[in-house]
Design a protein around this nucleic acid. Sequence first.
DNA 1: TATTTATGATAGCAATACTATCTATACAGG
DNA 2: CCTGTATAGATAGTATTGCTATCATAAATA
Lengths: 225, 225
Amino acid sequence: MKLQLHIRMNEALFLRNPEGSELGKKIIRHSVELIYKNGFEAFTFKKLAEDIKTTEAGIYRYFENKHKLLVYLTCWYWGWLEFQISFHTNNIKDPTVKLKRIIKLLASAVADDEQTNYLNESLLHQIIISEGSKAYLTKQVGEDNKQEFFKPYKDLCGIIGNIVRECNPKYKYPKSLASTIIEMAHFQNFFMNNLPSLTDFGNVKQESAIISFLDHLVFSSIKKV
Amino acid sequence: MKLQLHIRMNEALFLRNPEGSELGKKIIRHSVELIYKNGFEAFTFKKLAEDIKTTEAGIYRYFENKHKLLVYLTCWYWGWLEFQISFHTNNIKDPTVKLKRIIKLLASAVADDEQTNYLNESLLHQIIISEGSKAYLTKQVGEDNKQEFFKPYKDLCGIIGNIVRECNPKYKYPKSLASTIIEMAHFQNFFMNNLPSLTDFGNVKQESAIISFLDHLVFSSIKKV
DNA sequence: TATTTATGATAGCAATACTATCTATACAGG
DNA sequence: CCTGTATAGATAGTATTGCTATCATAAATA
């Protein structure tokens, strides 16, 4: 059975829906590959066009600029992750177990789902680690926020915050703890691989170490006294 | 008495030392103002040149490109902060009190030190919050790291990590906790002001709330059982 | 006084970030 | 079958960015 996951995207992110055509899907797939390979700064619509043998103007019919494309990718990622989380924590009653599972999902490398060839989830995960913050660390964050570009991220943060609250209703910072978990799952990974002396995982370089750190951080915080 | 603080900078960051001339100092001062005002993406050497009534080529004699200038500013900031920390925690014996003081320094808005007119520390602090991560979230992070561009950040992280270890020698993640404190002091501030629903401080919008959150996070983690 | 050094002025060039227009093709509806 | 409409390819053009190079001038220094 081939179960197709579809993530509903904010229409303000694109000019033409990339999911609706072959060219559109190619744009997404290859932009993930190019950004992964060369980084977001070096990524241009010209290079992308050459890569998929279309023209620059062709790309501009889908996305206004590369910032919107990056935001599109991050939104897709958060939506996808929310689904992964709801799938993998389904039927788990204990919020503590749930939270542990979520930390693991957040901090683990992602295997490319061969079934979805819309994009390579594993590369996208790497992009989110290295480039994800650039989606909101801009001067236009306010306007982008008004257009709900960060809704998927906020939704995920809200879900995690609620589970934190279930674990301990008296804990005062569920949302900040949630955003800390999400950001640190990625930043500690980036540091581990690029600036290892900022972490305690430089020698092992294993995600399991990050998971242990986050587990300890989170459960010490929300432990009832 | 006018005590002049001098921060020793990595020479590979510039072509000509900006501290050594009036033009150089103007470059630093005005780049902080412009980046603060328009954001790093919109910041160009051309605009900076117009702002200080020199030529583009004039700026390029000091800095190879705007990335190096951003790294320069972040280095200066971390060096400056290390001094602030050593100054304000001097003579404190209890590592717990020390750590509390450090969290406060990290998460507090900075008053511009009128004495140093090299640059506006208060604006620089805001820049570090919004743009600081872009100094290392690049494809060249490895080469930059080889040239020790992130040494001041690592040093600060090391200092904080050591104090964490003093608080509890058995705690397993002092360095990751240190980088988490530093990053979250800034990210929670950015979120509070720009994406408030990612935090629990949206209503109050006060740094004191971030400090309480970080205090709780850190001291729950390193508490001896 | 000669000479190095810093700056200013100007030019130029390749790449980036778009916008516009025109054509070919497919396919969908009448 | 014809005819609109939507999609994409082809080409051109423009302003800005991100540099590099050259020449002249003024100030500092040897």
